[in-house]
Design a protein around this nucleic acid. Structure first.
Lengths: 357, 357
DNA sequence: CTGAAAGCGCTTACAG
DNA sequence: CTGAAAGCGCTTACAG
């Protein structure tokens, strides 16, 4: 701390904007009276054996006194290793879902020494392109391209220029790697749970968009039936058109009414999602019937606001968003390392048992 | 493109990990046969007048041919200006709300040439600290500290070391700058809308936590009454304890039953939030009454899944999350510039009219 | 009109 | 055991 010999004034201090945080390795070196190379070594705890105990202590003391923290940007520059993983999502804002993916991705990224650079594109192609460019410019090792609901997508052309993994979506490109929920398994699980409780006439209110969720869940429903030797009855699957009636709840309500008007009513119904179930509840109640007594119902998605607070609370199948997020960064990192060839990874959807079945 | 004179092999190419993207300014310079300084000038479109047309064209061509993009990290290093704004949120995952804040913040950040570094802490103090450190290490110009519901917070100590703005929350520190929703205005608006429709006995089902939302909305409710010369009747505000009954819906249901059992029923009710309204709907229906005929109801939050799809659809007051996010980065940037002294900025909550009043 | 040089904050062989 | 030097990919005075 020899202030007398410290040629502090000779040094050009912060000729840059001045916006930079402050104390650099050079400051530490001067205070500890060692070279910056030495500071680097002790700060990074490298080649421990080569640094004298006394010196190391002096450096550490200086670091503490100045509150020094290495500039991560400079470190990246020299190491050539970016600390960033990009994540471009079409709608973090719309649903809690995307947030869970983000969380899973973030934690797995941190665990591996990476940091997430996120962008919400709101489906705008130009924003998507801008976001990807931004990520490339910041040297992201790769990007997670994520959608808030499971679907097929057109991969943005820019994505070809760096490692990418598709999260909750599947592009046409065969070499792509995707991580998505296992819709078939989920549909089967939902149906099995109803069947397990002795129901044999199980209806399925399914949506009509051509999507992995609609076809997958239906396939799962049929598998469950087949496994028990129950014949598939087309009359028991009710198609809904949420876009025509302004929402899933509305569609579920109508489908429910149709179901309840039948002479031979199903005793249980598997709903395409919790919103549909919410509408169905409404119909059942208007008919003076009770759930699950007169009709058992199971949903899909585990959308907390609805599922946990309907009367009765809704048993449902959860979408494994957190896990999908986490696995996506693992897949991306593998891909960066050169491992991980194109394929889609399906993650199990767990049941959340409440009181509607 | 003189390959003969290009001493390519003399240059040490990418002695780093090899992870780095690829083409550098040096590559462009060689291809265009100019110095890297020149490349820099044309790429950044600086000192235009000083670059010959012919040269500029040659450089641009090389840039295009190689697909060169500047390394943003290196640029930051030399300019001393970070492109990052940190955003630490306690729960992006839980609700759609936080996502809207993120979106608003992101767009405003991009507009100003910044990029968001986001971290979801799930309320864990150690993760919060780690996140802030990470942001400091990456030279973020400042951080947005955001909570998913409006409340008072204890500012993390680390936040003292760089410019910060509190988003959707208010710390005790007086010099802090906060951006929050205007609860009083919102409460008043909700009540006014009911009053405007001729109701005079307007109940308010309010939550009991000591929070800006509960006290603010109540204040707004009273103001609206006072402005019309309607005496405040304490019996008309029903306290609920959502944590005791496992949810707002459940609490709203119970409060609804209590209200409906009264001999002199209110004709309209302002609910603390949409979830409470959802529970109230249930109670009203069980009593064989209709909304808004027998009872008008207005909510708060505009939680899409609920508000837009209840039967009848719910009129409610929206939380201006997007705007809060956008204003927060404006405030942060001002703070970085040295302007913006400590204060709290309240953003108006707009009404979303549907069919329940 | 253009290039050489210094420098941003670091790390890593290479000497000694 | 420790320091000087080169270099990461850029930008910006300063010469010419």
């Amino acid at each position: 701390m020899n202030p007398g010999t410290d040629p502090d004034s000779d040094r050009v201090r912060r000729p840059n904007g001045g916006r930079s945080s402050n104390v650099t390795m050079r400051d530490v070196a001067e205070l500890a009276d060692v070279s910056i190379a030495t500071v680097s070594l002790v700060v990074n705890n490298k080649k421990r054996e080569r640094i004298g105990e006394e010196t190391r202590a002096r450096v550490l003391e200086a670091v503490a006194e100045l509150g020094y923290r290495p500039n991560a940007l400079a470190q990246s520059l020299v190491s050539g290793q970016s600390p960033f993983i990009g994540m471009v999502a079409d709608a973090i804002a719309s649903l809690p879902f995307a947030g869970q993916i983000l969380r899973g991705a973030q934690e797995e990224a941190w665990r591996n020494g990476y940091v997430l650079l996120v962008a919400d594109t709101d489906h705008a192609p130009d924003i998507t392109a801008e976001a990807i460019k931004m990520m490339i410019d910041h040297q992201a090792v790769g990007v997670l391209f994520s959608t808030w609901y499971h679907r097929e997508v057109q991969a943005p052309p820019l994505l070809a220029s760096l490692p990418a993994v598709f999260v909750n979506c599947i592009p046409q490109t065969p070499e792509a790697v995707s991580v998505v929920p296992d819709e078939v398994q989920g549909g089967r699980l939902a149906t099995d749970m109803l069947l397990d409780r002795g129901h044999t006439r199980v209806a399925f209110i399914n949506s009509t968009e051509e999507a992995p969720s609609t076809v997958g869940r239906l396939a799962g429903y049929r598998k469950a039936l087949a496994a028990r030797g129950i014949a598939f009855d087309p009359d028991l699957v009710l198609p809904i058109f949420p876009e025509r009636v302004d929402g899933f709840q509305e569609a579920g309500y109508e489908a429910g009414n149709e179901l309840l008007a039948r002479t031979e009513r199903p005793t249980a119904v598997f709903c395409y999602n919790d919103r549909v179930a919410m509408g169905l509840y409404e119909a059942v109640k208007e008919h003076g019937l009770t759930i699950p007594g007169d009709m058992a119902v199971i949903g899909f998605d585990d959308q907390e606001v609805i599922a946990a607070h309907l009367r009765p609370t809704l048993t449902t199948i959860a979408l494994p968003h957190y896990e999908i997020g986490a696995r996506s960064v693992r897949a991306l990192l593998n891909r960066v390392e050169g491992a991980e060839r194109g394929h889609v990874q399906r993650v199990d959807c767990p049941a959340v048992v409440r009181t509607s079945i």
